[in-house]
């Protein structure tokens, strides 16, 4: 069966994934994607994969979000869909 904490994390994951692709403001979408990466990292720490979890937290939720914010601030922030 699904443990309760994992279930809450999976719920947050789906909410963040759907929000990241539906929000029209690109900067907000990118920050929601960072939250998605961080929930994914918590889920992996729960699955006893701590090495993967801290790599994800530093590399994907950290550097990935910084790269995205840099790209969005150099291009445009509005999106049509």
């Amino acid at each position: 069966m699904i443990p309760t904490f994992n279930f809450i994390l999976i719920l947050f994951l789906f909410v963040c994934a759907i929000a990241a692709i539906t929000i029209r403001d690109l900067l907000s979408a990118v920050l929601v994607l960072g939250a998605y990466s961080f929930f994914m990292c918590l889920l992996w720490a729960q699955m006893t994969a701590v090495d993967v979890a801290f790599t994800e937290a530093s590399v994907s939720a950290g550097i990935g979000t910084v790269l995205f914010i840099g790209a969005v601030s150099r291009t445009e922030r509005r999106s049509k869909d």
Partner: peptide, 28 residues
């Protein structure tokens, strides 16, 4: 389906981490 290129990259990121999640969950 999304027309914006940054949205496509966000989708690619979600896709890749979903696959990594599958592999990690097989180690439990």
């Amino acid at each position: 389906a999304k027309k914006n290129l940054i949205k496509k990259i966000i989708g690619m990121n979600i896709f890749q981490s979903a696959i990594i999640l599958f592999f990690i969950s097989t180690s439990v």
